[in-house]
Design a protein around this nucleic acid. Structure first.
Length: 401
DNA sequence: CGAGATTCATGTGAAGTATACCTTTAGGCTTAA
DNA sequence: AAGCCTAAAGGTATACTTCACATGAATCTCGTA
């Protein structure tokens, strides 16, 4: 038993590794050089530069489709600025918050709590009035003179859920602060986001606006080449692999992150299969795996009730190819609840949950009127049918079904 | 035949409730002088 | 008397429920061409 395992590990060690430096291909990797975003890099840098003179920089708003380098660039510039600031003993803080994170920063209260905790201030998760939380927060940071850059990634998600007053309150925060100056960097995937918010907030939040256009296929190829040279051993990546990754990603509105994921996962799959080269076939497989992993990730972190709702939708989708309606989902949902002895929520709530699941992108939902036969949500799966059974079984396991 | 009324199944908004947690405060107990 | 602990009172955020009204096109109704 042990020998076999040891042999496997020995083998693993001896085997020609596909990767030379896998980190480079991971999505959280921060490259030294960012290609094809020179213009944005320069704009961002020049807008933020005054912060090194302890002058409050303009608020900035970045938007563009996913995987166009918004977050990457922001982090990159932040890092550089911070390094310089530290070297010169400037009290400059850059706080990065991702507003999408469920149960972390998806309400006004939680957002402030989250920001405060970045400053080491613990605030209870519930129980305090929101303006009290603001006060605690202000008190905590306003002690010494400093400059804070607050990066709000995926603000659109936050505003969609909790309204744009949050942004108003945040921008107003500056007048309450005596020593600290606060600048905002908002990042949004939704190109129309700015059109939907209060004009007053808009004008103060986006004093500067930078658009991140999608990468075209050639640019993605370029990015992939750079990274694969660093990440893979020479000659491991077969002819056409990069082109294919780029083509896949270009199809998805030029999402570079996706392209990189694709390449990395393809490499991992090849490695697992003890292959010497990454081939085009690996990419197809990787595509499927990424999709599945992504969904699994979202699904498994959902609260129980959401999972039950989702499970109901999946179950129905397996028996019919027709569109699914809220009423059907609710019936199945109740059955599942009874089976595991959980008190079912009301249809009102389930209706809201379905809307939330839509926001997550697992399903697509449209409110339609079926005339004489009432009005309902028309639910469609936003994931490949092939992935359903597996997710379903995992869901069931997690729910003791 | 077509304009207008009806109808259905659920969307949607507002207000209320349950839960879990918070701070404040008042009383009771202990302690030390 | 001062200090400390505890429990009750009074407050909030969040997830959910309850109630009531809004929707909007397929279908029905009925007057008219």
């Amino acid at each position: 038993m042990g020998d076999k395992l040891k042999a496997y590990f020995e083998d693993f060690l001896r085997k020609d590794p596909i990767f030379s430096n896998k980190k480079v291909l991971q999505t959280n990797y921060n490259p030294e050089k960012i290609s094809y975003r020179d213009e944005q890099l320069e704009s961002l840098a020049s807008t933020l530069a005054p912060s090194l003179r302890m002058e409050k920089p303009s608020n900035i708003f970045l938007y563009g489709k996913p995987g166009t380098g918004k977050t990457l660039l922001t982090k990159h510039v932040s890092k550089q600025i911070l390094e310089v600031a530290n070297k010169n003993n400037l009290s400059l803080n850059i706080i990065y918050i991702n507003c999408k994170m469920k149960r972390v920063a998806d309400t006004e209260y939680r957002l402030i709590v989250q920001i405060a905790s970045e400053f080491g201030k613990k605030i209870p998760a519930t129980g305090l009035p929101t303006d009290e939380v603001y006060k605690i927060f202000i008190k905590a940071i306003d002690e010494e003179k400093k400059l804070i850059l607050l990066v709000l990634d995926e603000v659109d998600q936050l505003v969609k859920k909790a309204g744009d007053e949050i942004l108003y309150n945040l921008t107003r925060l500056n007048s309450e602060l005596k020593n600290v100056e606060l600048s905002f960097i908002g990042i949004s995937n939704d190109l129309l986001f700015l059109d939907h918010i209060d004009p007053r907030v808009k004008s103060s939040l986006s004093e500067e606006e930078f658009v991140f256009p999608p990468y075209n296929a050639l640019q993605i190829q370029g990015i992939l080449r750079e990274r694969s040279e660093m990440g893979f051993r020479a000659g491991v990546v077969s002819e056409g692999v990069i082109e294919k990754c780029a083509a896949y990603a270009a199809r998805e509105h030029g999402d570079a992150r996706r392209a990189l994921d694709l390449l990395r996962v393809a490499g991992e799959l090849a490695e697992r299969k003890n292959k010497q080269k990454v081939t085009i076939e690996d990419i197809d497989e990787a595509e499927e795996k990424i999709e599945k992993d992504k969904i699994m990730d979202i699904v498994s972190t959902q609260p129980k009730q959401h999972q039950l709702t989702l499970l109901s939708i999946f179950s129905i989708s397996e028996i019919t190819t027709d569109h699914i309606f809220t009423g059907d989902v609710y019936e199945v949902y109740q059955d599942y609840c009874n089976k595991i002895k959980v008190k079912p929520l009301t249809q009102r709530r389930v209706s809201d949950i379905i809307a939330e699941l839509d926001m997550l992108g697992i399903i697509n939902v449209r409110v339609i009127s079926k005339g004489r036969y009432g009005r309902t949500r028309e639910i469609k799966l936003a994931i490949p049918n092939s992935a359903v059974p597996k997710i379903k079984t995992i869901l069931k396991e997690g729910l003791n079904l």
